[in-house]
Structure formats: structure tokens, C-alpha cells
Design a protein around this nucleic acid. Structure first.
Lengths: 151, 151
DNA sequence: ATACATGCAAACAATTTGCATATTA
DNA sequence: TAATATGCAAATTGTTTGCATGTAT
């Protein structure tokens, strides 16, 4: 799912095209990963100083219902990203910037019958860490901190 | 970790042995799986009609700090179970009763370098479904429902 | 006796809802 | 215009905190 598909789906279902909706979807397109309600509010408050959390929550929940977005929990925070429709896969998730990268490996394929008595209905496999850019950033700020600590 | 180890650890760290603490730990021992604050309150309100959520939350958070319990998110609900100390492993989690069963397979072992640019710091692998008992229960109540629906 | 534990009430944060108003189709 | 979207304020839920009191060591 992406912004354009989402806008088409919204129209098809009789929901209206508003600037805020478009901008929220735009954010997800730019981010390419997970965003929380708070991150959305922060990102949009320049364009819409009075934007309210109700609107953000209502739209997130609408988008979720329409399967435009999917929701996960990251570090105790509820976060959303575009729903992945094509095929089943998993993600590398950067703990600093929230960007995700798809990996095509699914551990369940090899584990079909681990326990014959347990009826499997779903699974979650997520890999956490730091993307290349954030590793750079962290190294940089760490060096800075170390220097500051010398004196 | 289990109840007795936990009680010993509490004493060793200078925390007191109270009936409520013991009963909370007992619940985790009986359950053998995940429990939420609400489930604990429900289970203990016969023995302690006035038990407050503050006490439960304070104890859960203490237990977590002492590594007696570990926390996860299950279906948007925060749940706890005894911390697994011995070795790294994953769980089959029953969506009905919350019981967990350890599996000794870890998908990360085979995936060490999926993406050389991404620095992996952790992962989550959980398998959801229904344990044998709950499959029975669900089948039973489903049959009952169907019969009720006939007339 | 002293430190830790608990209950109460209040504070908080995240999210949801009712209602009046504004906006899109 | 008719239906949906939004903001506001208030309600709800889950969780945390300050303070006075109770209890284990």
C-alpha cells in the first residue's frame, strides 16, 4: 500500500479527500517505516498548528480499518506503517529512526509442525537494531560525548 | 525464575516478604505463562477484596527491575511472565489462556548476516495459536453455539 | 525502631467520544 | 444539500505518584 492507492481507496469507499489525510499519508510515504501518533502530530503541527490528536487518532483508526495501515507495538509505543499486501514477509526495524526494511525470510516455513498439539494461527518475527545512517549518527554523537567528558 | 527463587532474591535485596507478593508470584507459578495486571487483580480479589492496582503495578515493576519477571505486549495488553534466565529461546503462546510453551528453535541463528549494513541488537519471535486444552474448549463452545443456533 | 509496603486519592498519559461547526463532494 | 471531517472539551482507560498509615524485619 502507498499514498496514491490509499487515496483511491478512500474515495472509492466514500470517504473524503482532505489536506490532513493526504499529509498523513504523505508522511508514511516519506518515512517508509513506523510512525506513532505523536510523531505525526509533531510533523504536522507546522502545516496545521491547531491539529488535534482526535483527528490523528481517528484517521489512523480509519486507515487501519481500511487496511491502509497496520499497527504494531514498538518499545511500548503504538506505531503504524503501510499495510503490506503483496506477500508475507518480515522487517528489520531501526530503533532510532523507525525505518523498516523488508526481509524475505520467514522462520515459520521451516517450523510447520513444532508441536502437533498446538494449533498455530499466527506469528511475529521482528529484528531490531540500527540502520546504517543511524549507526553513523550514534557513533558521531558518542565521540562528541566522549570528548566532552574528557575535561 | 520461579516463585521460590524470587522470594529468596527479594529477601537478599532487602525487600519484604508479604502475603500479596507471595500470592502474585504463586499466580505466575500456577499460570506458567503470561498474566496482565487486570488478571492478577481479578485472581486476588477474593483473597484480598481491597487490593489496589497501585500495589499490583508497583510489585510488577519491582519484579521487572529485579529480573524476576519479563514484560511483553500481547494483543495490545501488557503482560508478564517469569524471566527466563537459563538460555535463549522462544514461545508458543496460547491466545485463549495465555499459557506459554518453550521452543528451542531460534530463527536468528541461521540469519546472522542478512544485511551487513544493519546492526542487529535484538529480535522477537513469538508463535500464537491455541493449546490443546483451549482447542477442546473452543470446539465445545462452538458446538454449543451451533446447537443453540438451530432453533 | 526503622525501612519498606500498602491504600487512598489525585495526577498523568494515551486514546476515545459527543456534540457543534466546518468542509468536501 | 447532505454526509463526512474536524476541533473542542470531556470521558475513559491504563498506569504512576505523594502522602499518611500499616507491617515486616
Amino acid at each position: 500500500m502507498n499514498k496514491n492507492e490509499a487515496l483511491i481507496l478512500l474515495r472509492a469507499k466514500g470517504f473524503k479527500h482532505t489536506d490532513k489525510r493526504e499529509d498523513i499519508l504523505e508522511l508514511f510515504e516519506e518515512s517508509g517505516g513506523y510512525l506513532s501518533a505523536k510523531e505525526i502530530q509533531t510533523a504536522l503541527k507546522d502545516a496545521y498548528p491547531g491539529i488535534s490528536f482526535d483527528t490523528i487518532y481517528r484517521n489512523l483508526s480509519l486507515f487501519k480499518k481500511l487496511l491502509i495501515l497496520e499497527e504494531t507495538e514498538l518499545d511500548g509505543e503504538k506505531v503504524f506503517q503501510f499495510h503490506c499486501t503483496e506477500h508475507h514477509h518480515h522487517h528489520l526495524i531501526c530503533l532510532r529512526c523507525g525505518k523498516t526494511k523488508t526481509i524475505e525470510v520467514c522462520p515459520m516455513q521451516d517450523l510447520s509442525k513444532l508441536d502437533p498439539d498446538f494449533k498455530v494461527t499466527g506469528h511475529k518475527f521482528e529484528i531490531y537494531g540500527y540502520c546504517k545512517d543511524c549507526q553513523e549518527e550514534l557513533r558521531r554523537s558518542h565521540v562528541k560525548t566522549e570528548r566532552a567528558g574528557v575535561h
